[in-house]
Design a protein around this nucleic acid. Sequence first.
DNA 1: ATGGATGGTGTCCGTATGAACACCAATATA
DNA 2: TATATTGGTGTTCATACGGACACCATCCAT
Lengths: 199, 199
Amino acid sequence: MPASDTERDSEYLGRLRDYFADARRIPSLQRIATLMGFASKTAARKLLGRLEQAGFIERTPDDDAWMPARRFFERSLAGTAVRAGAPDMIDGAGGEPFLVDDYLVRTPSRTVMVPVKGDSMIEAGIHDGDIVVVERSKAARSGDIVIAIVDNEFTLKELSMERGRFILKPHNKAYPVIRPKGELELFGVVTGLVRRYQG
Amino acid sequence: MPASDTERDSEYLGRLRDYFADARRIPSLQRIATLMGFASKTAARKLLGRLEQAGFIERTPDDDAWMPARRFFERSLAGTAVRAGAPDMIDGAGGEPFLVDDYLVRTPSRTVMVPVKGDSMIEAGIHDGDIVVVERSKAARSGDIVIAIVDNEFTLKELSMERGRFILKPHNKAYPVIRPKGELELFGVVTGLVRRYQG
DNA sequence: ATGGATGGTGTCCGTATGAACACCAATATA
DNA sequence: TATATTGGTGTTCATACGGACACCATCCAT
């Protein structure tokens, strides 16, 4: 049972994608019916059911509406002459564009971008000039990369444990481990990173 | 006339953004009212009006619903001058507006996102699992990080010169330099990088 | 041939939705 | 001090919305 990968349904899916590209939403059953040429809303409803089954759309967390799911954004492999050894690109010609912001930012209201200064984390692949995505007031665990406030200064380090105490480990042999005297004040946890090459 | 950048409204905007991150849509007036603690839908409607005025949201092309506009995805970039002893800044306001996708992708039509496999570039701070931003059909120069096609395989290396010929330099001592026999075929130039920490 | 899925039509119904309007209280502004 | 602006409440109303149900035609497997 191939679930719903009918010829027709992928045609419908295509039109849904087009609509979504413009309006950033799954339209109402009525509009879907019009879009697809259905005479009844029920047909639209059943189509959505099939697309859900196939993993293209899903309900919102509050179960109030439809939202696109993973597969909805997958680029169509068809049409592209895929050569051997080609990487599975995420965003190529055809499908929905890959939104970096969406990929990196989970809770916008608590997320801040912070430019990196210095090379104390260079061995962790975090360079001077990179911009890290920082989620504030997120519970930090040992091993996380965090922005801490030490002596009234912001510093980017790996949070670690040593004899039951938190320490801040740089990833650069030229820098010393920081062992805070009293309470360790954290600004936030690094959840992502972006880098731009050349000017 | 600062349009609508009230203190309160940016708080509301934050909650809207969080909701959108989860549900990928602007909720109904009713739900907005609940979310913000309004007793009436009208307040929600007026809030949307203000947010539209300020350029955070807009109507869908078919004028059927609200959709986020450009500014909706603005993240705040922490000031480069990190003032000592003032960790209370930032949050919603504070830094300058920063659009992640605009920062990384300059020519969307020629840009592709490619997941990185392997650690041949680890000493350049490019890790397994990172996603590189690749601009196709861009003139590559020595020193650029490129995706080349060697023996029908895609490979990520630094483009370099050696005795008048192009070579591909890995950034990992365990890997050998690649010296292509004939013509060197390039897929594109790496113009950016995206990394996400933890699951 | 026949019977069950399956994609689609048509209709009914309760309700959540957005628009419109009158009104109020706090805050600026003159 | 007087007054306009603004963020918010409360209510009414037409309607678009999704869910449910009965029904039909085609396709496919037995």
